[in-house]
Design a protein around this nucleic acid. Structure first.
Lengths: 347, 347
DNA sequence: CTGAAAGCGCTTACAG
DNA sequence: CTGAAAGCGCTTACAG
């Protein structure tokens, strides 16, 4: 590998001058400049960024910690980070906790997390990252799991209550409101809701959005239309069967994720009814399969790509501390988008 | 950030000695050692790996170039790389070409690739990566798209004909053979095949596997049972309808990917038949949705995780050049696994 | 067992 | 406009 010193000797100037022409800093005579550039090209010179980083104390790398790369939300968030980082000239050091494979979806097992996180943060710090983005698998408070860090850290698809730290998420309440409102506007008044696990924040917020939509549009709230699932397909199936024991069964169902929506559709079809002719079903997450399902499933798309971009944007602002007062903080919320497909029909 | 020099002054020894105790190199007196360790802990010392790398000329980082992180195969391959890299103490610098978003699935537009690849490889080289793994989106020859690199590079989910370079892939022929054989063993003799685009290597190899299975089991090959789709769901639907214009229509269909299998199921159901009661359907890829589909789809799982691990393993061997003769090379092929679900039934 | 010194490949005041 | 020199934070022969 050619070094600056090689260019210097071959072009008969000092390393200082070579550095200046390579970085366009300082005034260098035009012929000196050309000579140096020519030699650099001949030698196929590539900057040693390790050396440069050491001297300048800037690495231009950010650490991205993902709880699990193979969970559906993560690649697209990462993609957004990549896009923005590429623009800004940052490299990504990726750490994959592989959490799902290690502990499944049981986030009460945070001892595993508590043990891993400090280690991977240390690693990242040793590699001199300028900031960290932490991508969760499920929206929840991770403040207890993640120790304070001496570089900026922004959380996405999870959040922190730590002051000065920033998270970027999506707006669950509005999303559920919009989904419910969509059904109401289509003439539905008996709208079943299949919630996820009750101890989860999305379940709470989405339920709130559902209720608000009913209230604001003067549709009576009937607790008999509410069931609690566990996010898995089978619970959507079972809760739907239960919903249809109601004397005046729903004409539409909002499932709080796509898997339960698929379960709901299966149950409805099994009961001899058809989606959307007899019952409309709407999901949440816009998982890939919803487009392939038969019928294709109307669902709320989470702005994953935008969350990644925004997270990187916020991190970038932290790193380059723009005017002290404009410092971003708290929880940024991006909007979801309704993706209309075949599983919903006007009443 | 505390430096070795800080530890040295505070514990009254030289930086050389501090370095020795921190790295367990050289003999250091036990009380000196303890003193140094104590001070290091007090100062919350973290190695500056940038400085260490510069001196030792080893970065312990490998570059992972993915054609598109959001395409289904990529996260799981990455996950395998992560697992192995973590064990071996390597960091991952992730570069996402975002190819699908840039050019879709038209790999004839390789000019975009040809322009991007040298750039990202240069970046990686400037960051002093010790090796590179390139993850394709579709099995194809990428030799023309990727210039020679001065560090080891291994390809996965794509391959190269460049000598000394190594690719790791899965065995398409055996996989298709096994899928077809499975149907034959269940008593099927009229087995339709819906191929992907004809210019693709997987289409070729899988067709070969299908034919071999028929031949070896003395099932007559009927070209009337063969249709060519384009990997998309609609083509599976349409080709299935065509297959059923055959005077003696198939009792089972092998679709060369899961999307076309989903299309096939849809078509079969629409024609008033049932899967698997009337027709069995088998897919390829084990996409996530196949488990949620109704009926759930029997399919061939590609060993993505293992491919990632193996790629990292091979790269690791290149980096640490174990005995010259054992150098891995050529195309490593891993086996697929049949995932049995509801869409197939004995005849 | 321990330390002084050189050097990895860069950048950057500073002097001329 | 150009160069000599110091230094970023480490490691590692080498000498003692």
């Amino acid at each position: 590998m050619a070094r600056i010193k090689d260019i210097a000797t071959q072009s008969g100037v000092s390393t200082a001058t070579v550095s200046h022409v390579l970085n366009n800093t300082g005034r260098v005579g035009v012929e000196t400049r050309e000579k140096v550039l020519k030699v650099a090209a001949e030698l196929n010179y590539k900057t040693n960024k390790i050396a440069k980083s050491l001297k300048t104390q800037r690495s231009y790398v950010i650490g991205v910690i993902v709880e699990d790369l193979t969970v559906f939300n993560t690649p697209e968030i990462c993609d957004g980070i990549n896009e923005f980082a590429e623009e800004k000239g940052y490299s990504i050091s990726l750490v994959n906790l592989r959490l799902f494979k290690r502990i499944g979806t049981d986030f009460t097992k945070t001892d595993v997390l508590k043990e891993m996180i400090p280690k991977v943060i240390d690693q990242l710090m040793e590699n001199q990252v300028e900031g960290i983005i932490y991508i969760g698998n499920h929206p929840r408070d991770v403040t207890e799991d993640i120790p304070p860090v001496s570089v900026p850290i922004v959380y996405t698809y999870c959040y922190t209550t730590r002051e000065d730290d920033c998270s970027v998420n999506y707006d669950d309440k509005s999303a559920a409101y919009e989904a419910t409102k969509y059904l109401i506007d289509l003439g539905h008044e008996k709208i079943g809701l299949i919630s996820g696990l009750i101890n989860s924040i999305p379940s709470h917020d989405r339920f709130y959005g559902y209720q608000t939509a009913l209230a604001e549009n003067e549709v009576l709230f009937d607790p008999g239309y509410i069931r609690t699932g566990d996010w898995k397909i089978d619970s959507g199936y079972e809760m739907t069967k239960e919903l249809f024991t109601h004397p005046d069964p729903p004409t539409a169902i909002v499932a709080l994720n796509d898997l339960m929506a698929a379960g709901a559709i299966k149950a409805i079809q099994e009961m001899g009814m058809s989606v959307p002719e007899d019952v409309s079903v709407i999901g949440f997450d816009n998982r890939e399969f919803t487009a392939f399902y038969s019928p294709s499933i109307t669902t709320m798309a989470i702005p994953l790509h935008e969350m990644g971009e925004k997270a990187m944007d916020v991190l970038f602002q932290f790193i380059h501390k723009t005017g002290s007062s404009e410092q971003p903080n708290g929880n940024v919320q991006l909007s979801c988008t309704l993706v209309k497909r075949e599983s919903v029909k006007a009443r």
